[in-house]
Simulated scan of single mutants.
Amino acid sequence: MSDTVTGVSKKTKERVSTVPSGVAAGDNPRRPCPCGSGRRYKACHGAADAAEMIVARPFEGLLAETELIALREFVPSATVPLTLQQPVDGVPSITLATVLPAAAAALTRSDRSILLGMQVQTHSGDLSRDLAAALEWALAAEPSSVLPVVGRATEGKRFQDLVVNEPFDVTVHDSFGWWLEAEPEPGSEVALSLERANGAIMPTARVADLPGVYWVDAGEKAHLRWVRPEDEAPLMAALARLSVDDELDLGDGSRYVGSFRAHGRLVPVWDLDRDAHPSEWDGPAKEFAARLEKALAVDEPMTSAQRRARDGILGRQFTLR
Rank of each mutant, 00 (worst) to 15 (best):
K10H: 10
K11A: 10
P20A: 15
A24Q: 06
C33R: 12
C33W: 05
C33M: 06
G36K: 10
R39S: 05
R39P: 01
D49M: 03
A51G: 00
V55Y: 00
A64L: 15
E67D: 15
L71F: 08
S77L: 03
P81V: 13
P81I: 13
T83A: 14
P87D: 10
D89A: 13
V91F: 11
P92I: 03
T95I: 09
A104R: 14
G117A: 11
D126W: 06
L131V: 03
E136V: 08
P148K: 03
V149G: 03
F159P: 00
F168N: 06
V170F: 00
P184S: 04
S188H: 09
R196W: 13
N198K: 09
A200V: 12
R206H: 08
A208H: 07
Y214L: 06
W215G: 13
A218L: 12
E220W: 03
V227I: 11
A233K: 14
L235Q: 11
A238E: 12
L242V: 11
L242Y: 06
D246I: 09
L248Q: 10
L250T: 00
Y256N: 05
F260G: 01
V267M: 03
W270C: 07
D273M: 05
S279F: 04
E280M: 08
D282V: 14
D282K: 11
G283S: 12
A289S: 12
L292P: 02
L292N: 03
K294Y: 04
A295Q: 05
M302I: 02
R308H: 05
A309R: 02
R310S: 07
Q317N: 06
